[in-house]
Lab assay of single mutants.
Amino acid sequence: DEDSERELEKLRKNNASKEEIKEVLKRLGFSEDEAKKLAEKAG
């Protein structure tokens, strides 16, 4: 959803580590696997 998109955008701009991105995604309700895949894509 839009909030998670914004959250990811912010992380990308701040050069967050894949680990940080994954944690945020998991907080947003993604499964471990989904979060890992998305973090890879974002990283």
Rank of each mutant, 00 (worst) to 15 (best):
K36F: 10
L25H: 00
D33N: 06
K36D: 15
E32N: 03
R6G: 07
A16E: 02
E34M: 08
R12H: 06
N15M: 10
S31D: 06
E7K: 08
E2C: 15
E40S: 08
K37P: 03
K26M: 15
E34K: 04
S31P: 06
A35Q: 03
E5K: 13
A42C: 14
E32F: 02
K18A: 13
K22W: 14
F30P: 00
A39E: 02
K36H: 12
R27C: 11
G43E: 10
L25Y: 06
K13F: 08
K41G: 12
D3P: 08
E34N: 04
K22C: 15
F30E: 00
L28M: 12
R6A: 10
G43F: 15
K10W: 10
E20P: 00
E2L: 13
L8V: 05
E9I: 11
R6K: 11
F30G: 00
L8W: 07
G43A: 12
N15Q: 09
K26V: 12
E34A: 08
G43S: 12
E19Y: 03
K18E: 12
E9D: 09
R27A: 08
K22E: 15
A39T: 06
N14W: 07
K18G: 05
G29N: 01
D33Y: 08
R27L: 09
E23D: 08
E23C: 15
I21N: 00
I21Q: 01
D1Y: 13
E34L: 08
G29A: 00
E40V: 07
E5S: 11
G43Y: 15
R27D: 02
D1T: 12
K18Y: 14
A16T: 03
A35Y: 05
A42Y: 15
R12D: 01
K22A: 12
E20M: 11
G29S: 00
L38Y: 09
D1K: 14
K18I: 15
E19A: 08
S31H: 03
E34C: 14
K10L: 10
E34T: 06
N14Y: 09
A35D: 01
S31E: 05
E5N: 10
N14T: 09
E7R: 11
V24T: 09
D3Y: 12
L28G: 01
N15V: 03
V24N: 04
K41I: 12
R6Y: 10
E20I: 07
A35C: 09
R6N: 08
I21H: 01
E7H: 08
E9Q: 12
E32L: 02
E9G: 08
K22D: 06
S17D: 05
N15P: 02
